[in-house]
């Protein structure tokens, strides 16, 4: 069984649907990467899982339970976590407070999780009492990921985690994503750096016009001449 499954999902923001039948399925050991041209509905697909976009028809299943149109305050306790692309830290709160907010739904002791997040992102430990708004772009992305990990999710969804980062940080963030996955957290992410992301993806989904164009492992997609011709182009 797949951990998260979208079956023929149609949905959008109220007007014409953005998603016109999206199928996505990954396991908890997977790194799933959604790629596609601008306006393909990549981010919308993530948001549809997280209840931020209305699902008009189709199914969204998490561990075989239907979760379509559930709100985050139900999804986070189930084990889903989401890092938005923009405005993904509380700028007026300190780093540590940001992390604590990620654990809002938990009533148990969060100190161990906090330590493991600091271990994963050492710069954050140094700046734990600094206000998040003062951090650099890469550090903010760490805070955002750290915050999402604080709820001890089974599935971490990231919306373009490398957007706006310098090349050095992009590699770092991707390494950290791999580390999180190695610790047993399923990853589902939208990525502009298609070639690079498909390189380490165990599942890849190419969306266009709100539909699946190609589905396969990362390697299959990279090797598929149709994918390359229609979407990957030169080197990304």
């Amino acid at each position: 069984m797949a951990m998260i499954e979208m079956k023929q999902v149609v949905g959008g923001y109220g007007g014409a649907p953005v998603l016109n039948g999206v199928d996505i399925a990954i396991d908890n050991t997977d790194i799933g990467v959604i790629v596609g041209p601008n306006g393909a509905g990549k981010s919308t697909a993530l948001k549809a899982i997280f209840g931020l976009v209305k699902v008009a028809s189709g199914e969204v299943l998490f561990e075989d339970r239907p979760i379509a149109n559930s709100l985050p305050d139900r999804l986070v306790p189930m084990g889903l976590s989401f890092v938005p692309q923009e405005k993904n830290v509380f700028t007026s709160l300190t780093v540590e407070e940001n992390l604590e907010m990620g654990a809002f739904i938990r009533r148990d002791d969060i100190r161990d999780t906090l330590d493991s997040v600091y271990e994963m992102f050492p710069p954050l430990k140094e700046k734990r009492h600094q206000v998040a708004g003062e951090l650099s772009g890469g550090q903010r992305q760490m805070v955002a990921m750290g915050r999402a990990l604080m709820s001890e999710p089974k599935l971490l969804m990231l919306d373009e985690p490398s957007a706006g980062l310098s090349p050095r940080y992009v590699g770092e963030i991707f390494d950290q994503i791999l580390k999180v996955n190695a610790a047993g957290v399923g990853i589902l992410m939208v990525e502009q750096n298609a070639r690079r992301a498909l390189g380490f993806a165990s599942r890849g989904f190419v969306l266009a016009g709100g539909k699946n164009l190609f589905t396969g492992t990362g390697k299959e997609l990279l090797a598929d001449p149709d994918v390359a011709a229609s979407f990957l182009g030169g080197h990304g």
């Binding site: 997280f50 931020l52 709100l71 985050p72 305050d73 999804l75 986070v76 306790p77 989401f82 938005p84 405005k87 993904n88 830290v89 509380f90 700028t91 007026s92 709160l93 407070e97 940001n98 604590e100 907010m101 990620g102 809002f104 739904i105 915050r147 999402a148 709820s151």
Partner: peptide, 24 residues
């Protein structure tokens, strides 16, 4: 306090607060 920080977080960024699972 947890609630007080959640208030500041909500005031700072309502969408992110909701995404974090804060009971707004």
């Amino acid at each position: 306090t947890r609630m007080g920080k959640a208030m500041r977080a909500t005031s700072d960024n309502l969408d992110l607060a909701q995404v974090s699972g804060i009971n707004t």
